[in-house]
């Protein structure tokens, strides 16, 4: 049987199809003002027997496909175990959410924490900050990694931090040092959530922000725990949704 999961996130829509325990199809695209159309386009010619939806747009899809839905938290909990069969601590930094999740030995949801309703310290925050400094997302991470020291950024609120960055650059602060400061701010905020739930051992890092090496390196250093990033950190929620179709 082919099982599918669709994760309609705030910035991207992801589709995963599994067969016999193997991920056979993985797609993602940017979310538009019409997430339903985006999701339908993404599903396109994909062949599957059952599908489960997750992410912010899950209830919208449910209305059209009459499919089951699960919360992102459960989806990430299940999806993480697909990529790392014994993981117990999960951090997902997506477009507008940060989730920290811990599992028991059997993989059941033990505790979770999410950021407040604003997008402070999330993927969207990093995008805006990179733009404010004139970097692409890839350059931004590299700049952070190469900086010798960091300029302290006090806010993870996207609006406040942007004006803080403008003030700093106007005072002549080095761009890569500001970049490192921003990465430290997002890591410090994520750790605040993670420490409430995490257990010792490896941290499974998912979501689009997991592609950012600077965040990963800082996270590993600050937590003092190894951080594992799966080959496609964005697909984890869709895989978890697919697995719950069984």
């Amino acid at each position: 049987m082919r099982i599918a999961g669709i994760d309609i996130g705030s910035r991207t829509v992801k589709l995963a199809v599994l067969e016999d325990g193997q991920l056979i199809l993985s797609r993602n695209t940017m979310t538009s003002y019409n997430p339903l159309a985006t999701a339908q386009e993404l599903m396109g010619d994909a062949v599957f027997d059952v599908i489960t939806a997750t992410g912010y747009g899950r209830h919208l899809i449910k209305g059209h496909l009459d499919c089951p839905v699960i919360s992102e938290i459960t989806a990430f909990a299940r999806g993480a175990r697909f990529f790392s069969s014994d993981c117990r601590s999960i951090l997902d930094i997506g477009g507008q959410d940060t989730k920290a999740i811990s599992l028991d030995q059997e993989g059941n949801l033990r505790k979770f924490e999410m950021n407040d309703k604003c997008a402070a310290g999330t993927g969207r925050f990093l995008e805006v900050m990179a733009t404010a400094l004139g970097f692409t997302i890839e350059e931004f991470s590299k700049a952070g990694l190469s900086a010798g020291k960091a300029v302290k950024i006090n806010s993870t609120c996207t609006v406040f931090a942007e004006s803080e960055v403008v003030s700093l650059t106007a005072q002549g602060a080095a761009r890569d040092e500001v970049a490192l400061g921003i990465h430290k701010a997002i890591v410090s905020r994520s750790i605040g959530l993670l420490k409430k739930v995490a257990v010792p051992g490896e941290i499974f890092f998912a979501g689009g922000v997991a592609y950012n090496d600077c965040v990963r390196v800082l996270l590993e250093k600050e937590m003092g725990q190894p951080v594992f990033v799966p080959s496609d950190p964005q697909i984890v929620g869709a895989v978890g949704a697919a697995l719950s179709s069984l």
């Binding site: 919360s71 938290i73 949801l109 407040d116």
Partner: peptide, 16 residues
Amino acid sequence: GDVEQIRTRVEALLES
């Protein structure tokens, strides 16, 4: 403004 964010948390709680 936070209804959908609360919904995600509550659904996760009940799923657990």
